[in-house]
């Protein structure tokens, strides 16, 4: 049987008890793939063109720029990282959803994986 698994952004947020920093208006959008890394060079190797969630603990302006170039629509910051106004500004301009949760990368990734979100590699 072939079927497609995806998650709405609002479902991801609810599952991880995450807060929307930007893009709450896109909560109904769907995500197929997830990738977790603190290494932005690795994120830039993703071939998927859209519907990607990035889970990361790296919280700086380059995280947002990398997501922009890699067409990552949703960035989830684990361990409640502090997002700066400059980051929010670019994310809003690019229609990017930024989520923040208190869980560790390991826990967030595990919870999303069992839901069926697809890995990129």
């Amino acid at each position: 049987m072939i079927y497609k698994i995806y998650m709405k952004i609002k479902e991801i947020a609810k599952l991880l008890d995450a807060t929307f920093i930007t893009g709450e208006q896109l909560a109904e959008s769907e995500i197929d793939f997830a990738f977790a890394s603190d290494l932005m060079s690795d994120v830039l190797t993703l071939k998927q063109a859209d519907r990607i969630l990035l889970i990361t603990g790296l919280c700086n302006i380059q995280t947002i720029r990398t997501a922009e170039m890699a067409n990552v629509e949703v960035v989830l910051f684990v361990r409640n990282k502090n997002v700066t106004n400059e980051m929010i500004e670019i994310a809003e301009e690019e229609n990017m959803v930024l989520l923040q949760c208190k869980y560790s990368m390991f826990r967030a990734v595990g919870m999303l994986y069992v839901q069926g979100l697809q890995p990129v590699y």
Partner: peptide, 16 residues
């Protein structure tokens, strides 16, 4: 490296 780069992947990724 703090910015999330410096893993020796830049030039090979440009080529790809």
């Amino acid at each position: 490296r703090e910015m999330g780069f410096g893993a020796g992947m830049g030039l090979p990724n440009i080529k790809n």
